[in-house]
Write a protein that binds this DNA or RNA. Structure first.
Lengths: 209, 209
DNA sequence: GCCGAGCTGGCACTGAGTGTCATTTCGCAC
DNA sequence: GTGCGAAATGACACTCAGTGCCAGCTCGGC
């Protein structure tokens, strides 16, 4: 049993906030209004959330820890991007209070500049988890170009899938994630297949070390 | 000739701001202080910059337009990622007031949460330019998964190169950009080369459509 | 020299976020 | 069930970003 929850529950504030924000937009709802709706003082709101921008991000740190632990348990003989793709899907699932609220929350985040900007800070923490796993797999330092690149690319693939999902009400997020990671793994093929004629290799920026 | 610049130059404000921010940190400098140092009222500051977060981003929109125009002039027989890598390097070069200030500015942006968050909004605009080019090359809609993915991955490669550059005072940014894009193109090879033993393909998330 | 347009400064106001302190609530020991 | 200490809360004051409004100034054209 939980040792008796605090009188003021984080969930109550989140619920009140999501309802008002969904109805009127993030910018038009003040923290004071949210606090009142949740039966809490403005000051107490800021004891539970570092900023107004954090209301919709829930227990991000906790989910991140879970993800990190999961990657630690992935065997090294599993293809890296296969594991990362599954990590993304696990993270999304854990991040959900039912698919409807999930979509609504993601829509708000990606369509509200202040929230999108805040999300980038969270994404940087997420990226660090991926980079740590990639560093282990590549046997390189975490801050080397390789692991960091894999982190950035994975974040890009996940974001591309998310944005596409929000445009298609009918699309399946997991399927989009799989497609995005499959494409990301083999971008060179995409490049070659769509380059109409030969480009003189001695002009290629990619040549050389 | 320019038709007589405004009395208040954007450059003067930027210069005053950069000096104070570099010396004392972004958060500890108030808009009022910057405005005073630039000999301008606080109100006027906000007529030149939409927010305090925008001071260090210069004429981003103008550079973006240049980049877009340049991509429009790239022939379709040039390999896509080769062109994008050059686009990144061109953008960086145009974004510079001498390499010292460039590095200092990027350090501030990437190390100050508020600025990093703001940068993500700018990066989204940058990404849209890349996606437009990719859409043309792939002959797909701009908002399809492919073009968007290429935009996200390119942004990731550029960011990975940037962050690595900031850690290595001696590193060459262009070389890092080339390396990052070369790796991004062939991630599958990296994956295969570092997967220690065979993973049963029927468990692969990538299988199927 | 006059006039209108655009730039500027000053002022007041909203709202986010923070420090401080008094009060309340709750778990716990007795 | 009574009292105690710690933690949570509420209230207040304050800083600072950002905005609307209006009055005054400057500059070029007439």
């Amino acid at each position: 049993m939980t040792p008796t929850p605090q009188q003021t529950s984080v969930e109550a504030i989140e619920k009140a906030a999501l309802e008002m924000i969904a109805a009127r937009g993030f910018q038009d709802v003040t923290v004071e209004e949210i606090a009142n709706a949740a039966g809490v003082s403005r000051r107490t709101f800021f004891r539970y959330f570092a900023s107004k921008n954090d209301i919709l991000f829930g227990n991000f740190a906790g989910l991140l820890k879970e993800l990190d632990d999961w990657f630690a348990s992935v065997p090294d003989d599993r293809p890296m991007f296969d594991a990362i793709a599954e990590g993304v899907m696990r993270f999304n699932r854990a991040n959900t209070d039912g698919p409807v609220a999930h979509r609504q929350r993601m829509e708000l985040i990606l369509l509200t500049p202040a929230l999108k900007a805040n999300a980038s800070l969270r994404n940087a923490e997420w990226l660090a988890v991926i980079a740590r796993y990639a560093a282990r797999r590549l046997d390189e330092p975490e801050d080397a170009l390789g692991p960091q690149l894999i982190g950035h690319v994975s974040l890009g693939a996940a974001n591309a899938a998310y944005e596409r999902w929000l445009r298609d009400a009918s699309a399946d997020l997991n399927e989009l994630v799989r497609r995005a990671f499959r494409m990301a793994r083999t971008l060179a093929e995409l490049d070659i297949a769509t380059t109409r004629s030969s480009w003189r290799l001695d002009r290629e920026s990619f040549k050389g070390s």
